[in-house]
Each structure stands twice: as structure tokens, then as C-alpha cells.
Design a protein around this nucleic acid. Structure first.
Lengths: 247, 247
DNA sequence: CGGAACGTTGATTCTCCTCAAGCGGGGTGG
DNA sequence: CCACCCCGCTTGAGGAGAATCAACGTTCCG
């Protein structure tokens, strides 16, 4: 957040988007240039509401920081629908009228880029590979939403936490933000609870158990997955079909 | 299911699709003809697996009967992701590579139509209103999936059941399959449980409570919502933004 | 008549929630 | 510089909601 050279960091942040999409569809240099030339948009503090439920969504990319799509109930209960990571798109699709869906809040300080030029390029239908990458990224988002239903519906608290951690680690790896079992971890236990439909207290106890089981290690804003195979077995997490992604 | 004239019923079944889409976007006669001329595809018994998790999905419409998209866990736990009603599309979108997502099983006997001609028309980009209708139908599906996350994550059993019932009633009304507070009800308590992440026994007890509270009335394959306002208040169900749908 | 599928009931257990309090670090203002 | 506070984490006690286990009743159907 306070890197000495924000300019140099900027290039790396756009590369997250490029790597994310390149993992899904091989992009020609022209398409990569579209991404690299997206105008930077806004900087947000932690806890800011990027988008309300009612507002039409402008398309954006997250350059740095984490955000979350969520729904509130009248009495204050909150459900996080999906966690948005650096390199992820928000509202990047061809549909002209994306039914207003949900509010988005930042979980940390966040920098975004304006995705409008990319969406405009998509609508010309002259960038088939970029279009495919966007479609696959949207399909991955949908897969994560489906996983979220299964987690909240049929998983135990322990399974839910393992599954969420594996999903986030996989997604961070996909965009190249992470290349080991250790990842940045800005989520509070309350955010985990709101994502998994649990109480804060219960999340705390489960995390302690997982630390005792030596499944994970946490501290200093980082989280390490110590036993990836075991976590996969517990959570039944499976990344989206690689056969399709490489097709 | 055993109507005297299946031929006459067939026209009404295609009209469900037309009314469903017409509620989302005003369709020109040419587009309506595309729908009416879709070739009928298959007839399935209750409990048949229309689509497996691995298989590439052919696009279809449900002409009659109910189906469900679901995920299984290794130990047999099942989570229904969404319930598919007559007039709903399955895999109807422009994306060429819809990441394999989930299996689909029939809940009752089902008749489907082949949606391939409609998808082909979409890809020509020469049917803007039909395209818009499809986009909005997909947006409604996404809204329902989001609701499913909130239900399973933050609702009590009572709220979940109320919310599911209101959603299904609203969707049946949208496609014109229902025009009162009474709707066809082929769902077993097990199906409700698998949709809402509850046990069968608990669903049974909550339904009894709801009958005692005179919220609903059930029997003979039908379900009546006796207190719609109260059910809306309990569940916080809101149909997707009408302002967008009519735009 | 027997069986299968669905609904119902009771007893018991346990996962997870709520309430309440205390701890520790990081920042702010006096 | 210190006191204070806020936030996030931790801990304990008690309780509610929902799961599980095990029957049993009905209805439908071959």
C-alpha cells in the first residue's frame, strides 16, 4: 500500500489482469495492450461502498486490494456473495442491462481501473480471444457463486473454511499474485463469518482448531496453507475444469 | 401430465417460453416464431439426469415438468442450486464455452425443446430484442442464485422456506403458468431440504408450523400462499428490479 | 399382498449462536 | 509521552436451532 514507487507498481497491477485472462485464453498483443492502457480510475479507503444495489454498475478492474459483493438483510445480517481479488473484473460483460445485482464494498484500501474501453472493444465482436477470456472469467465467477451455495448449504463450518481458503488461494495463483502456499490475508474473522454464514465466535474457534491441526498458519497479514492435500480432501474443492480452460 | 390432447397442450407449453421472455423484453413476431418453431426434443421420466457435471450442455427449454440443477458431495449430501420451471432455458446463452457447471436432474416427468436454433439466431447478433430477453433471463437466473446464497447463508429455516416459496410463485407468475396464489407443487420435502440445506425432518416440522400459522395450505400437488404480504415480510423476498426489466 | 415412496412423530444429540467479558495492538489526542 | 479508545481476537457459559436416529402411518402401485 505504501510502496516507494507507485508508478512501477502500477505496471505490475495491470499485469495481474493480463495474467488472469491469459490463464483462460491466449491473448494477442493487441488485446494485452487494451488492458495495459485502461485508464486508472479511483482509489478507495477500506470499507468504502464502490457500488450500491440500485446503481447501474460501471465496469472496473481491481488493481490492488480486496473487495466483496454482498447483500444486507433488514436486521443487519450480512452475506458476502463473493470476494473480489486484484485482477478481477467488476461488471465486465457484454450485456447492456445487467440487472442490478448487489452492492460492493472494499475490504481493504483499493485501486481500480476503468474497464469501459475494454467493454467497448468487446461489443465490436472483433476481439474473439479477449471475448473468450472474459466469458471464461465470468464462468469462473459463476462457478465460485455455485460453490458458495454448496458451502453455505451443505458444508460444515470446518469444510466451509477449508473450501474458502482453497478457493482464494487458487484464484490468487491463477492471476499470478501468489506462487507458494503463503498468501496475503487481509480478511478479518468477521469477513470470513459474513462470507460463510457463520458467527464470528464460531469462525474464531474453527480457525484455532485448524491451527492446532496444523492445516494452516496465520499472522502478519499472511496465511499459509500447510497441508494443501488434506484441505482439498476436507473441502472437496476442485478448480474449474482445466480441460475447458485450455481449449 | 395426462391431458387428453397432448398436441393442443404443446402450443401452450411453447407459449410459456414466449410469455416468460415477453415479460422481460417486447419480442417482435419474428422472434416469437423462432421460439414457436423450436423442435421438441426429449421426454424424461422423473429422476432422470438430463445433464451431468462433465458433459457439454446442449441448450434446451423446459416445456413441462420441473427440474433442478444440483451438486453432490462425496458422502451423498446433495445441494440443489436452482429449480428449473416450465418455460425456463437451460444453457441458453451466447458463450461458446460455458465452463461445465453442474448436473441437472428432473424432479418430475419433463418435456424439453431443443434450443439450438434460438442460440444460433443469437450468435448472428441480428435479434436485439430476443438477445435482450435472453440476457435478462440469465440475469434473473443469476439473481436467484444470489438469493440462494443469502438464504443458505443468513436465513433461518422458516425464512428460507418462505423465501423459496415466494421465489417460485413469482417465477411461475412471470411465465404465466400461474395467476393466483395457488400453484402446482411437485416438490417433495426432501427436494425442499436439498434446496435449502436443511434436513427432511426439519423441513417437515417447519411446514407444519407454517400451516398452523395459516401462511400456506398444501395438498393434492398444489400449494397456496394464504398470506403473501406476511410471507414477503418474513423472507424479504424482492423480485428483480422491475425498472430494469421494463426498460 | 407386499413394497416403495413420502410424510409424520418422538427422543436425543450436537453444531453453532448469543451474550458477555477480557485481552492486545495501533492509532489519536490531550 | 501517556491515557484512552477502537478494533479485532479470544474465551467462557448457556441456550436455541437444526441434525440424527428410529419408528410408524399413508398412499399408491404393481
Amino acid at each position: 500500500m505504501k510502496t516507494p514507487s507507485q508508478r512501477a507498481g502500477s505496471r505490475a497491477q495491470y499485469d495481474l489482469i493480463v495474467r488472469h485472462y491469459s490463464a483462460l485464453s491466449e491473448l494477442p498483443p493487441a488485446d494485452i495492450e487494451i488492458i495495459r492502457n485502461l485508464p486508472p480510475a479511483e482509489t478507495w479507503a477500506a470499507g468504502a461502498e464502490i457500488q450500491t444495489e440500485a446503481s447501474p454498475s460501471q465496469p472496473r478492474f481491481l488493481l490492488s486490494g480486496w473487495a466483496a459483493r454482498f447483500k444486507m438483510l433488514r436486521d443487519g445480517r450480512r452475506q458476502i456473495l463473493s470476494i473480489i481479488l486484484p485482477g478481477d473484473g467488476i461488471g465486465v460483460c457484454e450485456r447492456l442491462t445487467p440487472l442490478a445485482l448487489s452492492a460492493i464494498a472494499t475490504l481493504t484500501a483499493v485501486r481500480t481501473a476503468d474497464a469501459a474501453p475494454l467493454v467497448a472493444a468487446l461489443r465490436e465482436h472483433s476481439h474473439p480471444l479477449l471475448q473468450q477470456a472474459v466469458h471464461l472469467a465470468n464462468a469462473v465467477d459463476e462457478k465460485c457463486l455455485i460453490d458458495q451455495v454448496v458451502r453455505n448449504g451443505r458444508h460444515t463450518a470446518h469444510e466451509r473454511i477449508c473450501h474458502l481458503f482453497m478457493e482464494l488461494h487458487w484464484r490468487l495463483t491463477l492471476s499470478g499474485a501468489v506462487d507458494s502456499q503463503t498468501m496475503p490475508w487481509p480478511l478479518t474473522q468477521e469477513m470470513i463469518a459474513d462470507s460463510l454464514g457463520l458467527s464470528i465466535v464460531h469462525v474464531n474457534r474453527m480457525l484455532q482448531q485448524m491451527r492446532r491441526e496444523k492445516l494452516i498458519e496465520a499472522g502478519h497479514g499472511m496465511l499459509t496453507i500447510l497441508k494443501p492435500e488434506e484441505m482439498l480432501a476436507i473441502s472437496e474443492f476442485r478448480p474449474p475444469q482445466p480441460s475447458v480452460a485450455t481449449g
